[in-house]
Simulated assay, not measured.
Amino acid sequence: MTPAYVVFENEHRIAAGDLPEVARTAKQLLDQRKDATVLVFNGRTSALVDIDFRGSVDDVLARLPKPARPLDEEPAVPAAPRGPGRPKLGVVAREITLLPRHWDWLAQQKGGASVAIRKLVDEARRASGDKDRTRAAQDAAYRFMTTMAGNRPNYEEAIRALFAHDRRRFTALIADWPADIRDHAIQLAYSDQAD
């Protein structure tokens, strides 16, 4: 399972876990070694997390960005004002734009347009779930590798192998990279697959 956040100091992974945990570890390292440089990554997307490391550990922790709601988590029900939709059920009214033929088809569906659209979305999510997870894993690995290994030998060929779904070639091409970078890239790229 991929940790929520990961912090690297040069080519070494020094911490993984929730944001306060990795920020604390990074801050302690920065306090010990003034020449150290750290990068904090979102563990799932490999987006860099901007952390202001000025001040004490408590100062750093107080300024941490609030974590975003995971895509799978239902949004909190708004307290007020009540508008269209069914807030107690988590149903939120939003606007969509369709052509007249789409509206005509939806009007003929059992349960109405909203029920039909929800069914279509759920069906599409089930049908493309594996592809979406694979693409998200590849994108995360690509972002991480670009940041941490863009100047490493075989970088471009490894990216090609990653997007060609050639796991054997990918792992062979990055075999000589520093262990923490190599292992994290593999973990990101194939987090959606069993070994």
Rank of each mutant, 00 (worst) to 15 (best):
I117G: 09
T97V: 11
D50G: 06
A79S: 12
I14A: 02
V38P: 05
T134Y: 03
K66I: 03
N42G: 05
A47H: 14
A136P: 01
L30D: 02
R160W: 00
L89D: 15
D18P: 03
A15Q: 06
E11H: 14
P3V: 04
F53R: 05
K66W: 00
P67G: 04
Y190H: 09
I159N: 08
T171F: 02
R44E: 08
G17Q: 04
A80N: 11
A161S: 14
K88C: 02
R143P: 06
D192Q: 14
F170E: 01
A140L: 08
R13K: 15
I96F: 14
L173Y: 06
R44S: 09
A93C: 02
D18G: 10
D18Y: 05
R101M: 09
I117C: 10
A116N: 07
H102R: 04
T37L: 09
R168P: 00
R54F: 04
R133V: 04
N154H: 15
R24Y: 00
V38T: 10
Y5F: 14
A137F: 05
D132I: 03
T146N: 11
L188K: 07
Y155A: 05
V38Y: 05
R167P: 01
A4C: 04
G17R: 09
E157G: 10
T147G: 04
R125T: 10
H184R: 13
T134I: 09
P65R: 00
Q187H: 11
L48K: 15
R160C: 01
L89C: 02
Y142Q: 11
A161T: 02
M148A: 12
F144D: 12
V77N: 12
E74I: 11
P78L: 11
R126A: 15
D130A: 10
T25K: 15
I14E: 06
N10V: 13
K27D: 00
P3L: 09
A141R: 05
A15Y: 05
Q28T: 06
R182S: 08
R143D: 06
A4S: 14
L30K: 14
L64F: 03
E21Y: 13
G111M: 10
D50S: 13
R168W: 03
P178A: 10
D59F: 00
A141S: 14
S46Y: 09
A189H: 09
A194W: 11
D130G: 03
F144V: 05
M148C: 06
S46L: 11
D50C: 01
E95F: 08
M145D: 09
F41I: 00
E11P: 00
Q108N: 07
R125A: 12
A136G: 04
E73Q: 15
G43K: 07
G55N: 10
D31H: 09
T2M: 13
